[in-house]
């Protein structure tokens, strides 16, 4: 495995100087980022925004997962892609864009859909999982895997003029994604709440993706984030951000399966 780095090079001090000068960031914080491993599931609207900031900020190892190809209807909001990208895999295209931005980091690409067969291989070893996917089945799968494997998950989603953000890192206290929305897997009608069926204001992926990147950086820098015990509801119509207090749900299937596996 990679050993952690404990010094920045001159060009890194130069490149990251504007963030290192922040009081609660500093060289120590920058080294934390350099020694971090983050996986981004979904390289569409949210994923490409988050990835650009994390790559730009110097996260040491990024992995990108997306089995979809770029479509013309993605271009209004997925700013890492241009017309030449149409028909090409999103994670491959995004990697090339990110390397042009910063070749000081390592990027791994997985041009496959995440599923129960490859999830162990693709998510293991990361310090943080960022859910930027576009469907409930994958969201539930990622949540379940992260809770079972005790890997922190920051989940973001958008639709229309609305966004949602939460961090699942202490599910026993503050609950997981399933604790919050319970029974989503049974709600096939709800499986339609995606950009392709409900529509989206392109700028909302910028708003919510930027919040996700901002709080992911705070988490990796070991700075407090309200998202570990709250869900943020972002309203693009009124500019209101509602922070609601989460709690573990004693009837959550995911959390209770962990408990029972610990007992046996």
């Amino acid at each position: 495995m990679n050993s952690s780095v404990n010094k920045l090079r001159d060009n890194e001090f130069n490149r990251y100087s504007r963030q290192i000068m922040l009081n609660d960031w500093g060289e120590e914080g920058q080294l934390r980022l350099k020694n971090s491993r983050v996986v981004i599931v979904g390289c569409g609207g949210l994923g490409s925004v988050v990835a650009s900031y994390l790559a730009g900020c110097g996260i040491g190892q990024l992995s990108l997962i997306d089995g979809d190809d770029v479509e013309l209807s993605n271009l209004p909001r997925q700013l890492s892609f241009d017309m030449d990208s149409v028909g090409l895999n999103k994670s491959d295209e995004l990697m090339q864009r990110l390397y042009a931005q910063n070749d000081d980091i390592d990027i791994t690409v997985n041009p496959d859909q995440l599923d129960k067969f490859n999830i162990d291989e693709l998510l293991t070893g990361n310090d943080l999982v960022l859910d930027c996917t576009d469907n409930f089945d994958t969201r539930l799968l990622i949540n379940q895997w992260c809770v079972m494997n005790v890997v922190p998950l920051m989940s973001a989603s958008v639709i229309g003029w609305q966004g949602q953000l939460l961090l699942v890192d202490k599910p026993a206290e503050h609950g997981c994604y399933e604790c919050l929305f319970g029974g989503l897997s049974d709600q096939k009608a709800n499986a339609q709440q995606s950009c392709s069926t409900m529509g989206i204001n392109p700028a909302m992926v910028g708003v919510v993706g930027s919040y996700q990147a901002n709080q992911a950086l705070r988490y990796l820098l070991k700075l407090p984030t309200p998202l570990s015990n709250k869900i943020a509801l972002v309203d693009g119509m009124t500019m209101a951000v509602n922070l609601l207090n989460r709690q573990a749900n004693s009837q959550c299937d995911v959390c209770s399966s962990i408990k029972s596996s610990l007992i046996t």
């Binding site: 969201r139 958008v158 639709i159 949602q164």
Partner: peptide
Amino acid sequence: DIIPKQDWEQCVLNDGDNVNVFGAIAGG
């Protein structure tokens, strides 16, 4: 404060309470 689903029937509201109702969204 989020109220777990199984407590909805027992959770009595008071005058002036603010209630937030929202569904999960999946777009990314």
